[in-house]
Amino acid sequence: MTDKNIKFPRLFLRLALAVTMLSAVADRFGFWGAGSAWGNWSNFEAYTKKLTFFLPETLSIVSAYAATFFEIIFPLMLLVGWKTRIAAYGAGFLLLVFALSMTMALGIKASLDYSVWVGSAGAFLLAVQPKYFFSIDHLTHK
């Protein structure tokens, strides 16, 4: 494949990862309403405690805030294409930790149903791409 043939798939993967992660953040702040996965921060904290059952409660709460912070930063970086490789690796590791925690706490089916493994794999695939068209990275490396 030539660079011309894979510009759109690279861009699509970058945007899909970013929008998906930002949607999860929007949910925990109540933007998707009551019928969503969490609907509010309290429900998200309770879910995080369930997934991080192996941590003390204080660290579980800290992990909810840390995950949210990184689930805002990495997707914003992906959206604009700034430090894309770093953001993609960060998103990949974040989603991998989430997938592993879901699997340990809820079983493999939960992580498969939410396609967390696919998101992590996609992020790692994006991270190893040689170029990121339609991005700040591309503009600054010309």
Rank of each mutant, 00 (worst) to 15 (best):
S60T: 03
F98H: 10
S135C: 04
S63C: 10
E57L: 14
F70W: 07
F70C: 04
V80S: 11
G90N: 10
D137V: 02
L95D: 06
P9R: 09
L126A: 05
L79N: 07
T103N: 12
T68I: 01
T2S: 10
F53Y: 12
S101M: 15
A24Q: 12
F29D: 02
T48N: 10
D3H: 08
L13N: 08
K109V: 07
I72F: 04
W117F: 13
P9N: 05
T84P: 08
F53A: 05
R14I: 02
F133S: 11
F29M: 01
L51V: 07
G119Y: 13
K4A: 08
N5P: 00
K142P: 14
V118T: 13
F124E: 11
L17T: 07
H141E: 15
F44H: 06
A88G: 04
K4R: 13
L11K: 04
S63M: 13
G119W: 13
F31A: 12
H138D: 15
S101F: 15
S115N: 14
K131G: 00
N43L: 00
F8G: 01
G107R: 07
L11N: 06
A34K: 14
V25S: 04
V116W: 03
F93G: 02
M102A: 12
R85D: 11
N5E: 13
L59Q: 13
T68K: 00
V118Y: 10
F53E: 00
A110V: 05
N40P: 03
K4Q: 07
S63F: 05
E71S: 11
W32S: 04
I6C: 02
I61Y: 14
F31Q: 02
M104I: 13
Q129R: 13
G35W: 02
A105G: 09
K109A: 05
A18I: 04
G39D: 09
F134K: 01
R10E: 07
K131Q: 10
Y114F: 13
S101K: 13
D137R: 06
F29T: 00
L15V: 08
D27F: 13
Y114H: 04
A123H: 05
A24T: 01
Y89L: 14
K4C: 01
F93N: 01
M104N: 14
I6H: 01
V116K: 09
